[in-house]
Design a protein around this nucleic acid. Structure first.
Length: 933
DNA sequence: AGAGTCACG
DNA sequence: GACGTACGTGACTCTG
């Protein structure tokens, strides 16, 4: 049947896809012969997803994969240098190219390439033919060169991210609609494809010109009218080059194609061809999935290395949630406990009524001792939702809660049995509230984090999809979402069991997949000395919490509310009408349209910027409204985020606030604090500091704060080997004043606060991967001045330049950097081009410094409990704020505590790393956090 | 859900 | 040569 209305053609940019898959996916090799197959695997997964219609789009009725043909094209005749700068294909990718063609045929999909034409031209031709016949077209590619085809029933989709690219996305990228994309490309050129364009004109400027003049020819005809001399000259001088560029970027829509679209009609998968191919590639998971879908038997895969003895590896059956056992009585549980003792380890996962481990109740426990073998032990399921007067009735077929716990406690506490968990801190806290101490443990989240920080997230879903090629059952399918959401105890046991047990199964599989990687990646020490031992320490801190004075917060809230009302009234008067002060959009319109204040700048979303820096500039020019808005915003922030929200977080039973630290959240090794975030409690303004007064000690106790002084700059001095800086730290000098003196030649005793402030900004800038632009912005000085500062800084402290260059080179080569303690932080984006690479470079420069500081305080925290015990110190560690630790301790023990903990903190780097600079810790004591700090 | 804004180190 | 840029986080509000 001929293609037409109601049909949907998918055109896959084959070369583009495998190139991206190669760079985005971990380097997978075929087990039997180490043939690299990562990109092929990604390609097969994408094909299968597409055929299933599992992409957020409907399934295609017609489908083809289009490849580039390696021979030259008409573009080389027009412009011999076309794509001349392409780097050679990576060695590991080369053998995968023919395999992707094979894969396409194995899936029964039309595979197209044609001599003399790029894939893009063929895609253009087919897309236009299908569109004109009335069919829908989706191009699977993220190549910007194809964006000119979008519109009128043609859309694009990013095959890796499943993101749709329509006319709006094209406009966002090029500043013009799809029909004018080639004109913008012709002007802006493209360094990757070596399209010359007009020198001095980038995408932004090009879009501006095209929007005003229409297209390249009209623009060139009226080039004389352009005001900016540089632009005008560039257009006049390069007119021919621009015309050539346009021909290069314009896709040929009328290639005399050798294959018709009707031949692309989707055929049912043939098990006889697709399964043998997948098995030959040794893609276990997708082989099983495809076999299951076809109702065929999956072929056995022999991936024994050809010239190595058969390995005694645990067999990994496919994940099948219908096979898990539900444990309903003591006899069944005892069998599992026996198996655990036999094995010596067990994967454990808990199901609870919520995400807040201080309030959620245990509903069930899952165990797994072997991939594919897992059980669910329901303990507190109920029928229905209950009512206001009483709880719902307990479901049938569950073990007695206490009896189960009584049986499991010895196993969970057995020092000879390893408990394997994903995000162990959560489950440990749940068990701790039931008086069960879980130890020893392994945590798959942290095993992943130690090896792969910066490469991907470390949640179970992400890890499972990446390393097991399996998407876990979404919890939403059981408990729903939004208003109608129920808690896990209300889920029927038969529904809950497959979901719950699957998590234990997955955790165990992740452990077998990830743990062996620690040794070759040299991250065992990081995991064993800085990740895993931190878990029990954080459990103690989080469970203990910090006392917060609700009345103090409540009083502040009221006073803030009054203040806001007053400011709001003033602001409305100044604006001449009422509007929502909290809406940046409305504020921008008031300021820059209605009041017609100069200097309004619209960002990429088309809204005016109204950030604090912009409003400050306006306020300094004498405008009252922005000044009042700044005041209002400050008060509003303090009220909503701190005085109001913090009260909600006071635990009804403990009367304290219990934050939760994420150990694997920040790429650099820092912790992050959530629910609530206690690492960003105000301190910089007087008014904000009063919120710290609400953090108090229990009667008879005090709060003690100990913080590292200038730890990141000290680490910089050490890593970059800057002698003068190191000496200054040894001499205990004011480091910013010393920097200023060194740079500007001002003697220390004549130092002015302003000169010191500038030097301080530069010191921090260096840690952040300095740029003239950034420093200029920060100091509000011209960029040339900032550039001069930086040059002088590099001159005075030559080690810095070397450190930055060495770090960049290392990052570029290895796609990662390291801390002094061996923590790896990956920076994969360093391989990209454009602004993303810039971000990656600055992050790479910052990460070893921020990360080493994070390592040091982690080591200190891990040592503190034992040190306090040895010194027989009462009191507790409560909070960590990156370079500060906060304790609560009986008043008369405060001085001893400071002595003991300071010692631990100042020596925390030893014996692993010797520093050329001393670490210095300042301490303070007080009835509340404001006083202690 | 994402952008904008702002609190911290 | 242009582009867009200080590093790392989390929470709240508005808006589509």
């Amino acid at each position: 049947m001929a293609i037409g209305k109601g049909h949907h053609l998918h055109l896959i940019d084959g070369s583009g896809f495998i190139f991206r898959a190669f760079h985005a996916l971990p380097p997978l090799t075929r087990k039997s012969d180490s043939l690299p197959v990562g990109a092929v695997s990604g390609f097969c997964n994408m094909l299968f997803k597409m055929l299933e219609g599992n992409t957020g789009h409907d399934a295609p009725t017609h489908l083809a994969v289009i490849f580039d043909h390696s021979a030259k094209t008409f573009r080389n005749d027009i412009y011999p240098q076309y794509k001349a700068h392409r780097p050679p294909m990576p060695e590991d990718l080369r053998p995968q190219i023919p395999l992707t063609r094979e894969a396409t045929r194995a899936f029964g999909i039309c595979c197209i390439e044609q001599e003399g034409w790029e894939a893009d031209d063929l895609i253009a031709t087919f897309a236009v033919q299908a569109r004109d016949a009335g069919a829908r077209v989706t191009i699977i590619s993220s190549d910007k060169d194809l964006m000119q085809l979008v519109g009128g029933g043609v859309e694009m989709m990013d095959g890796m991210k499943n993101v749709t690219i329509g006319p709006e996305e094209v406009e966002a990228k090029f500043g013009v609609g799809p029909d004018r994309v080639v004109d913008v490309q012709a002007l802006a050129g493209d360094s990757v494809d070596n399209i010359p364009g007009a020198p001095g004109i980038g995408i932004k400027t090009a879009a501006l010109l095209i929007n005003e003049y229409g297209d390249v020819e009209s623009l060139l005809a009226r080039a004389e009218e352009i005001k900016q001399p540089k632009r005008r000259q560039s257009l006049i001088d390069n007119a021919e080059q621009i015309r050539i560029s346009k021909r290069l970027v314009t896709l040929e829509q009328h290639v005399p194609v050798e294959v018709g679209i009707d031949a692309m009609e989707v055929q049912p998968l043939d098990p006889e061809t697709v399964l043998p191919f997948l098995a030959e590639m040794e893609f276990r998971t997708i082989t099983n999935r495809v076999a299951e879908k076809l109702g065929a038997k999956a072929p056995t895969i022999d991936d024994t290395p050809a010239n190595a003895p058969a390995m005694d590896e645990p067999d990994m059956p496919p994940i099948d949630p219908s096979k898990y056992e539900i444990v309903r009585d003591a006899e069944a549980l005892q069998i599992w406990i026996d198996r655990i003792h036999e094995r010596g380890y067990v994967a454990v996962d808990t199901e609870t009524t919520g995400l807040d481990e201080m309030r959620a109740d245990l509903v069930g426990i899952c165990l797994s001792v072997e991939p594919g073998q897992a059980c669910y032990i329901p303990l507190a399921h109920v029928n229905g939702t209950g009512d206001l007067l009483g709880g719902a009735e307990r479901s049938e077929g569950q073990m007695d809660f206490d009896r189960a716990l009584q049986m499991l406690k010895p196993v969970l506490e057995d020092p000879a049995i390893l408990k394997i968990l994903q995000n162990a801190k959560y489950d440990i806290k749940i068990f701790a509230r039931l008086n069960v101490t879980v130890a020893p443990i392994d945590d798959t989240m942290l095993i992943s984090y130690a090896q792969h920080a910066g490469l991907h997230g470390h949640g179970m879903d992400a890890l499972s999809e990446r390393y097991l090629d399996h998407k876990p059952i979404p919890i939403k399918e059981l408990i729903g979402a939004g208003k109608k959401q129920i808690t896990f105890d209300q889920v029927k046991i038969d529904d809950a069991a497959p979901y719950a047990a699957e998590d234990a199964d997955i955790t165990l599989r992740l452990w077998t997949a990830l743990k062996p990687g620690l040794i070759p990646s040299r991250t065992t020490t990081v995991y064993e000395t800085m990740e895993r031992p931190l878990v029990p320490v954080l459990v103690q801190m989080e469970r203990h919490g910090i006392k917060v004075d609700r009345d103090h917060l409540s009083r502040m809230s009221n006073s803030f509310a009054q203040k806001m009302a007053g400011l709001e009234h003033e602001i409305h008067e100044l604006a001449g009408r009422k509007f929502n002060v909290g809406s940046p959009k409305q504020l921008g319109e008031i300021l820059f349209d209605e009041m017609a204040i100069e200097g309004g700048k619209k960002g990429k979303t088309g809204a005016y910027g109204t950030g604090a820096d912009i409003l400050e500039t306006l306020a300094a020019l004498g405008h009252d409204l922005p000044a009042r808005v700044l005041d209002w915003r400050q008060v509003s922030k303090l009220k909503s985020t701190y005085t109001d929200a913090l009260q909600e977080h006071i635990h009804p039973e403990t009367g304290r606030v219990h934050t939760s630290y994420s150990i694997a959240g920040a790429n650099t090794g820092r912790l992050a604090s959530t629910d609530p975030n206690l690492q960003n409690i105000p301190v910089r303004t007087e008014e904000g500091r009063r919120i710290r007064e609400a953090f108090i000690a229990e009667e008879g106790n005090v709060l003690v704060s100990l913080d590292y002084s200038q730890i990141e700059l000290r680490i910089l001095a050490h890593i970059a080997e800057i002698d003068s800086l190191k000496q200054a730290f040894r001499d205990g000098l004011d480091i910013h004043a010393m920097t200023a003196s060194e740079m500007f030649g001002v003697p220390l005793d004549e130092m002015t606060p302003d000169v010191r402030r500038q030097a301080k900004a530069i010191n921090f800038g260096v840690i952040y991967g300095i740029s003239a632009f950034g420093l200029a912005n920060n100091l509000r000085i011209p960029r040339e001045d900032a550039k001069a500062f930086i040059d002088r800084y590099f001159e005075r402290f030559p080690g810095i330049q070397k450190y930055m260059d060495d770090t960049k080179a290392f990052a570029k080569e290895h796609k990662r950097v390291e801390t002094l303690f061996g923590r790896r932080i990956h920076t994969p984006e360093i391989a990209s081009s454009g602004p993303r690479a810039g971000f990656a470079y600055r992050a790479a420069i910052n990460a070893p410094i921020q990360g080493t500081a994070a390592d040091i305080i982690r080591r200190a925290m891990i040592r503190v409990p034992a040190a306090m015990q040895a010194a027989k110190l009462p009191g507790r560690m409560l909070l960590q704020v990156h370079d500060e630790l906060l304790f609560e301790v009986p008043r008369d023990a405060a001085d001893d505590l400071i002595g003991t903990v300071r010692e631990v903190m100042e020596q925390a780097h030893l014996p692993a790393v010797a520093l050329d600079v001393p670490l210095v810790v300042d301490g303070g004591t007080g009835a509340n956090w404001a006083q202690a700090h």
